[in-house]
Simulated assay, not measured.
Amino acid sequence: MPKTKCAIIGSGNIGTDLMIKIRETSAHLELAVVIGIDPESEGLARARSLGIATSHDGIDGARMLPEWQEVRIVFDATSAKAHAYHNDICRMDGKYMVDLTPAAIGPYCVPVVNMEDHLDQQNVNMVTCGGQATIPMVYAVRRVSQALPYAEIVASVSSRSAGPGTRANLDEFTRTTKKGVEVIGGAKRGKAIIILNPAEPPMIMRDTVYTLSEGAEETEIAESVAAMVQEVQAYVPGYRLKQEVQFERFGHNSPLNIPGYGMFSGVKTSIFLEVEGAGHYLPPYAGNLDIMTSAGLATAERLAIKHFGAAA
């Protein structure tokens, strides 16, 4: 069965990592075009060395390439601002989009939670690297609870792994991740914080998830979290708990007062994660690249299987 041809818009850290992943690991996708705006970028140079068609004139230049006509799935690894234009072009040209920016034009997609719900959509949004790492944990708590009044995530990544596109998207990162925590994770209220850590040597990606839940026992939550970690590891092997899940219970005789919510009785859960990258492009400290590109690749492969006859 022939592979489904795809293109990547963006030749920075995310796009280059994704290019290597597709070339080295994908059973269903063939990378036909890599698109950038800097003719001297390392990503475009690497693509050319591999015999992949390139454009340094953005998506408009790519449309002039004969290879563009055969592309069925397009990854966008640029910026939230640029994605709106890219999506308009791809919609007009009849191509599916996997959006790795925080633009959130299409529905949010976290593979282990809701990927199958959105495979008929022309555009699916992969939230953010922090969202891909933490939303599965929020959902793991929510699925065994009666209610999840609040969830907060803190994503800490090495500043070395944050390229210009990531830095330009920091405001969109916090807004999109917060909404993803609510829409996909199931929290009534969410909060998201990102930290670009300048430590040398670079630190591995670390994520902390705090939830306040009602109607679940600590053992149920711990089991649900452990099961979800294994599900994520199916496509991100370096995803793991840093330490055991921690709990604090607030009884009716000593409730917690949450501003904007009121008095809370239930369980506070603290989940500590780290994500080690596969090292396809940047070294393993760049788990933020790995979890984002791995999630996008997993989603695109399911699109290829469903819509273009790729063998399951």
Rank of each mutant, 00 (worst) to 15 (best):
L119K: 05
I59Y: 07
K21L: 13
A53P: 06
R72F: 07
G94A: 03
A53T: 13
R48V: 10
A147C: 07
L65E: 05
D93H: 05
I73G: 04
I52A: 08
A80H: 10
M126P: 04
G61D: 08
T101M: 06
K81G: 01
Q146I: 10
A151H: 02
Y150W: 14
D57M: 10
G43K: 05
K21Q: 15
A77W: 06
E30I: 03
Q122I: 11
S145R: 04
S26E: 09
V71L: 03
M97G: 00
H83M: 12
L29K: 08
S55D: 10
V141A: 13
A45R: 15
A104W: 02
R48G: 03
V138E: 07
N125P: 03
P39I: 04
V144S: 05
N114G: 05
Y139H: 14
G36Y: 02
I135A: 02
W68N: 01
M126R: 04
Q132P: 03
Y85G: 04
V113I: 15
T134G: 14
K21E: 15
D57A: 13
D99Y: 01
N125Y: 01
P66A: 00
V124G: 06
V33D: 04
V74H: 01
P66R: 08
P107D: 11
H28A: 14
D57P: 00
N123I: 15
R23V: 15
I89M: 02
N87A: 13
S145Y: 02
D117F: 02
D76Q: 09
P111C: 07
P39R: 09
M97N: 09
V98T: 05
T54Y: 06
A27L: 14
E30D: 15
C90Q: 04
C109P: 07
R46Y: 13
P39E: 12
W68D: 03
Q132R: 03
G43I: 09
Y139T: 12
D120H: 00
L119W: 02
G51I: 09
P136G: 04
A140S: 09
E152P: 00
R48F: 01
A82K: 10
I52N: 04
Q146L: 13
A80I: 07
L44R: 01
Y150R: 14
D88M: 10
A104Q: 14
M92D: 12
R46I: 11
L50P: 00
V33Q: 07
V141M: 08
D93I: 08
L44Y: 01
A84D: 14
Y108T: 02
T128S: 14
R143S: 07
R72C: 10
S145N: 04
H118Y: 11
S49W: 01
E40R: 12
I59G: 06
A133Y: 03
W68C: 04
I35C: 09
Y139K: 13
T128W: 07
D120Q: 11
I59S: 02
R142V: 03
I89G: 01
K95R: 15
V98R: 05
A27D: 15
I52H: 02
D76P: 00
A53K: 07
L50K: 11
G130T: 08
E70K: 11
Q132M: 12
Y85D: 09
D88Y: 00
G130E: 09
N125K: 00
D57Q: 11
V113T: 12
I59F: 05
G58S: 09
R63F: 07
V34T: 11
H28G: 05
V98H: 09
H28T: 14
P66S: 05
D57C: 02
D117N: 09
R46E: 14
E40L: 11
V112E: 11
S55A: 08
